[in-house]
Design a protein around this nucleic acid. Structure first.
Length: 258
DNA sequence: ATGGTAGCGCTGCTA
């Protein structure tokens, strides 16, 4: 099974590129983030014509997550579940079982700055994800949580860690929240196969950062042991960050042996 | 160099 995650920064703006990319890379399961679409505007028929079932969780203007699958798509769930009082006010998490793997597409809050309420929302959001996994899943089962985590796991995942002192994406609390997910039973599957530093999945649109190799690895495919032990190949598709109207993120792709 | 670009949508927020 080939599984990918890609923050596409508006599916409306990116649909032609996503269609061409599906035909070229032939992923079986795709986790998308930042669709920026309401559910009614999600182009399910376009994906169906390409052989993919899909589930989408969106609010319209911001956020929005989806899963595409050509190996079956069952038991979709949205957000953290529970009643409306506990519902996430933003559309950042969707689940489905695809080809025997319980898959989540996650768009972790950015955090904005360490003194912003949104940063506390980010930390709470990650803790809720950890609690949800602990209460609804088992680390001995095949589970993948893939998406834009807005966290660089280590300093080797950032072009210049000094630029992020006092900022989000590298703070101790964020990395601790990620470590809590790992302590439950998730592994950074890309890092398992690609140990070298300086491999990034996001580059700011501004100041020519992509061409200066000033990026961060913040898009992760986390998998439980049954998944991680079967990962045969991992890559970041930098070509998807080039050319006309790219997203500011590149897809992360994992191949999992049957 | 306290900037820069992209998306949404029409004003400024979000990233």
């Amino acid at each position: 099974m080939r599984l990918a995650t890609w923050n596409i920064n508006s599916l409306k703006a990116r649909l032609p590129r996503v269609e061409a990319w599906l035909a070229e890379l032939e992923p079986d399961v795709v986790c998308l983030q930042e669709t920026k679409l309401a559910d009614a505007a999600f182009p399910a028929l376009t994906f169906r014509a390409l052989g993919y079932e899909a589930v989408h969780h969106g609010e319209g203007r911001w956020n929005g997550v989806a899963i595409l699958s050509r190996v079956g798509l069952e038991d979709p769930e949205f957000g953290f579940g529970g009643d409306t009082a506990e519902a996430d006010p933003e559309a950042r998490l969707v689940w489905a079982t695809c080809g025997g793997v319980r898959v989540a597409s996650a768009y972790v809050p950015n955090g904005r700055s360490l003194d912003d309420d949104h940063y506390q929302y980010k930390l709470r959001w990650l803790a809720r994800l950890r609690d949800l996994l602990a209460s609804t899943a088992d680390p001995s089962d095949p589970v993948v949580v893939a998406g834009d985590f807005n966290i660089a796991p280590t300093d080797e995942d950032v072009w210049d860690p000094a630029e992020f002192v006092g900022a989000t994406h590298t703070s101790t609390a964020e990395r601790a929240a990620l470590a809590e997910l790992e302590s439950w039973g998730l592994t950074d599957t890309f890092r398992l196969r690609q140990p070298e530093p300086g491999l990034y999945s996001w580059w700011d649109y501004r100041a020519g950062n992509f061409h200066k190799h000033k990026g961060m690895r913040i898009d992760l495919v986390l998998g439980t042991r049954p998944v991680a032990d079967r990962v045969t190949f991992a890559t970041i598709d930098r070509n998807a960050r080039k050319g006309q109207q790219p997203s500011d993120h590149a897809p992360v792709i994992i191949d999992i042996a049957d």
